[in-house]
Deep mutational scan, measured.
Amino acid sequence: MGFKLLSKLLVYLTASIMAIASPLAFSVDSSGEYPTVSEIPVGEVRLYQIADGVWSHIATQSFDGAVYPSNGLIVRDGDELLLIDTAWGAKNTAALLAEIEKQIGLPVTRAVSTHFHDDRVGGVDVLRAAGVATYASPSTRRLAEVEGNEIPTHSLEGLSSSGDAVRFGPVELFYPGAAHSTDNLIVYVPSASVLYGGCAIYELSRTSAGNVADADLAEWPTSIERIQQHYPEAQFVIPGHGLPGGLDLLKHTTNVVKAHTNRSVVE
């Protein structure tokens, strides 16, 4: 069995187990497998329904001669939608809004960016022009300005110390501490036991640490421990890039980060 097929099978099995364990909360999309990078042309966006009122959005972007996937989250909030992270750029984010209108038909009224990198804030200006209120932590807003990236308009308070959590509509926002970046936030959907790890969490097929220019490698494993301790009931975990899975993604990420750190020390 090929690795790609095995990865998709694991996603399907995880979703099936969740649907059985929580039949009222989960209505997993039966329309197909989780979209992969090879299936999404740059400039297009796919939506994948995880649970009743919960979707991931998947886009792709060219970077350094390669094409990478990027995940975000959409959560229903009454007759409105909360968006977590842009679709990595203005063109993708405009396509995301169009796809949401086509498939869901509810307005996106608020959006949260989970850290300051372009795959999370690139497209904020498109959201703002569409009347979406954009939010991020003060740290993310400051770092985005320093980096020359787009800056969300509103500040999220109460997320300055490791372990801080605040309720934001249908989700809980959690600051686990520094990891992929010093400002990275985690998003949890309690009604569906869905954990969105953003770039602080890796997919299972990833074996290298990737972009760690703004990471705190020493603190990252401790931050992941905080996530595990705060959300032990999480059933569906979405990484910032690639295929979702279960809580095993947290341990896998820790292993990859520690291996990278150990290699760096040896070198």
Rank of each mutant, 00 (worst) to 15 (best):
D64P: 13
A98R: 09
S16M: 03
R167K: 04
D164M: 08
P69Q: 09
H154I: 10
D183T: 00
H230S: 06
K102S: 12
S22H: 14
I50D: 04
D52Y: 03
H117W: 00
L249C: 15
K251P: 11
A178C: 08
S139L: 10
I201H: 02
V237I: 02
S160P: 13
E203C: 02
L47E: 01
G123W: 01
V266H: 15
V256L: 14
P232N: 02
F168V: 07
E219Q: 03
I74F: 06
D77S: 10
G198P: 01
M1W: 09
A179H: 00
L6N: 03
I227Q: 01
L83N: 13
G78R: 12
P239G: 08
S70Q: 13
Q61M: 05
D248L: 05
L250R: 02
E101T: 10
E147D: 11
F168M: 09
L96E: 02
D214A: 10
N71E: 02
S155A: 09
I40P: 12
R142T: 15
G105R: 12
Q103E: 08
S223W: 00
Q49F: 08
V37D: 08
G246A: 12
G158N: 15
G131E: 08
Y48A: 10
V187K: 00
V54K: 01
T207Q: 03
F26K: 15
L156T: 12
F174K: 03
A15V: 07
L204G: 05
I74C: 14
T153I: 04
R110A: 11
G210F: 15
H260G: 07
I17N: 02
A111L: 03
P170R: 06
L24T: 12
F3H: 04
S160F: 12
S162C: 07
A59W: 02
A200Q: 04
V121C: 15
A144T: 10
S208N: 14
T207S: 06
L10V: 09
E157D: 15
R263K: 15
R46C: 12
A136Q: 02
F236L: 15
K258N: 03
H117D: 00
P69H: 03
F63A: 04
S27C: 13
V112Y: 15
F63H: 12
Q61A: 11
E147I: 15
F63Y: 02
D216I: 14
E225T: 02
I74K: 01
V112P: 01
Y188M: 08
S155Y: 12
E150Y: 15
L106A: 09
D29Y: 07
S113T: 08
S22E: 09
G246D: 10
Q103T: 12
R167P: 06
T207W: 04
V237K: 01
R263A: 07
A129Y: 15
L81V: 08
D118I: 10
S56H: 06
L83V: 09
V121E: 01
D216G: 08
A66I: 14
S205F: 11
N255W: 14
G177E: 00
I104C: 13
